[in-house]
């Protein structure tokens, strides 16, 4: 008996050691490349041209950032990114919450039909081309509103919020009705303040996808003044790729100056995500749970 437990302990300790060792390697695989990008973005073009892997800038320099900020384009792109994220999130969350509140009442006439219509949209879509033709005929091509209006509703988010609203005790609503409040006021003044955690979860995820989205721009926008950061970065990447190909076997110099600009733009584009990441992390576990309620 005694020897058995000791052996069990030893087994367990070896298991723990191996486990922690492997997980440490895994985290290094994730962190190292990211760290390398940040470091390289602060390295001078000359040092970048030498190549080599660095954990610390060989020659610290802000020249890449200076080059990026010299372009007027980046200020505009940053503004568009922020504007489309803020406006997009606020309108998306409000619109979804409004529809979800209406649908959370089981006595609403026509609810079965509305729900069926919504669920179908979760599984079927017209796809890229029919959607493009629709956007075109609505006159949304090359308009800022193409970032906002088609993204107003996601039925997945509606279901999450609807389930959340259903969990709120009905006594609150009943007493408000006795006080003479209508459904709109109950929704705005009672349910919205009560549901802030759920709304925040949806807002954060929607915000990340708005910030990261570049397909909308690629499909519907030609006007460079409406380009967000992601699209600007995409253009830089495509350009430097083309230059790379023209330079096969040639000098590394051109490759590395654009490389520096590219790295700095990557960092600038990603900083907002990293800043809200702690918040995101607080909410996404609860978000997964909200989603799981629907089963």
């Amino acid at each position: 008996m005694n020897t058995k437990t000791i052996r069990g302990d030893l087994d367990s300790r070896i298991f723990n050691a191996v486990n922690i060792f492997l997980l440490t390697i895994f985290t290094i695989i994730i962190i190292l490349p990211l760290w390398n990008v940040v470091i390289s973005s602060f390295t001078s073009g000359k040092a970048l041209a030498d190549g080599g892997f660095a954990l610390w800038p060989k020659e610290f320099s802000l020249e890449n950032y200076r080059a990026v900020f010299r372009e007027d384009m980046i200020y505009n792109a940053f503004f568009i990114s922020v504007a489309k994220t803020v406006v997009g999130v606020v309108t998306h969350v409000f619109f979804c919450a409004m529809v979800a509140y209406g649908l959370s009442k089981s006595y609403v006439r026509g609810r079965k039909l509305y729900m069926a219509m919504g669920v179908i949209t979760m599984f079927f879509s017209g796809g890229m081309i029919p959607t493009y033709l629709l956007i075109k005929s609505l006159g949304l091509l090359n308009s800022f509103w193409v970032y906002i209006i088609p993204a107003l509703l996601s039925f997945y988010d509606v279901i999450i919020l609807m389930n959340f609203f259903r969990g709120v005790p009905s006594s609150l609503e009943e007493s408000a009705k006795i006080d003479g409040l209508g459904d709109w006021r109950i929704f705005l003044y009672i349910f919205i303040p009560l549901s802030l955690p759920a709304l925040a979860t949806i807002a954060l995820f929607n915000g990340v996808s708005q910030w990261n989205d570049f397909m909308t721009t690629k499909l519907y926008i030609n006007d460079k003044s409406l380009y967000p950061l992601q699209m600007m970065l995409y253009e830089i990447i495509v350009q430097s790729q083309t230059k790379n190909m023209q330079n096969i076997g040639g000098s590394y110099v051109i490759e590395t100056t654009t490389k520096g600009v590219q790295l700095a733009t990557i960092v600038i584009t990603t900083v907002p995500i990293v800043v809200i990441y702690p918040l995101l992390q607080r909410y996404f576990i609860s978000g997964m749970m909200l989603g799981a309620v629907k089963g």
Binding site: K105, V108, R109, G126
Partner: peptide, 28 residues
């Protein structure tokens, strides 16, 4: 229920325009 309906119907209109019209558009 006009108050509740007025919350849902914008969503229904949205779905008809942005989901069902493109599905119809698949006929091309």
């Amino acid at each position: 229920q006009w108050e509740l309906q007025s919350m849902i119907l914008p969503g229904v209109v949205f779905m008809i325009i942005f989901c069902y019209i493109p599905i119809y558009g698949l006929t091309i």
